[in-house]
Computed example of a mutant assay.
Amino acid sequence: MKLADKQLQELKDLTQTATNVDLAKALGISANTIQTWRLRDKIPEKIFLKARRISQNEELPTPQGMVSLTYYDVEASAGHGSLVEVEVATEINFAEVFLRDELGVNPKEVFAMKVKGESMYPTLKDGARVIIKRVDDFAGDGIYVFRVNGQIMIKRLQFQPTKITFVSDNNHFYQPWELTHTEIKNIDFEILGQAVWGGGKL
Rank of each mutant, 00 (worst) to 15 (best):
Ile152Trp: 07
Gly150Asp: 03
Leu60Phe: 01
Gln56Lys: 10
Ile164Arg: 00
Lys116His: 07
Thr19Tyr: 11
Val21Leu: 14
Gly127Pro: 07
Ser82Asp: 15
Val135Thr: 11
Ala31Glu: 12
Met120Asn: 03
Ala24Pro: 05
Leu103Arg: 05
Phe138Leu: 03
Asp126Arg: 08
Leu23Asp: 05
Leu60Cys: 01
Phe94Asn: 02
Leu69Asn: 04
Ala195Thr: 12
Gly140Phe: 00
Lys185Ala: 05
Gln160Met: 03
Lys6Asn: 08
Leu83Pro: 10
Asp188Phe: 05
Met120Ala: 02
Leu60His: 01
Ser168Phe: 08
Lys6Ala: 06
Leu124Ile: 06
Glu190Trp: 06
Val97Ala: 12
Val88Pro: 13
Arg147Trp: 07
Lys2Asp: 13
Met113Ile: 07
Asp188His: 04
Pro107Ile: 10
Gly104Thr: 07
Ser77Tyr: 01
Leu202Thr: 14
Phe159Gln: 00
Lys12Glu: 06
Leu8Pro: 01
Asp41Gln: 09
Asn93Leu: 10
Gln7Ala: 08
Leu39Asp: 15
Asp73Arg: 06
Glu91Tyr: 15
Val135Gln: 07
Leu23Cys: 09
Val74Ser: 03
Ile29Val: 13
Val130Pro: 04
Leu27Cys: 08
Ile131Ala: 12
Gln194Cys: 02
Val67Trp: 15
Met113Trp: 04
Phe173Glu: 15
Gln64Leu: 13
Met113Asp: 07
Thr62Glu: 03
Thr165Arg: 06
Ile34Asp: 02
Pro61Lys: 04
Glu183Leu: 05
Val21Ser: 14
Val110Gly: 03
Lys108Phe: 15
Ile47Met: 12
Leu179Asn: 04
Ala139Gln: 10
Val88Thr: 14
Asn57Gly: 08
Gln175Thr: 13
Glu85Asp: 15
Tyr121Leu: 08
Glu102Val: 15
Val130Met: 14
Arg100Trp: 12
Gln7Pro: 03
Ser55Trp: 05
Leu49Met: 13
Met1Gln: 11
Lys46Pro: 08
Gly81Lys: 06
Ile29Lys: 02
Arg147Met: 12
Thr90Pro: 06
Lys46Asp: 14
Asn32Glu: 12
Arg134Glu: 15
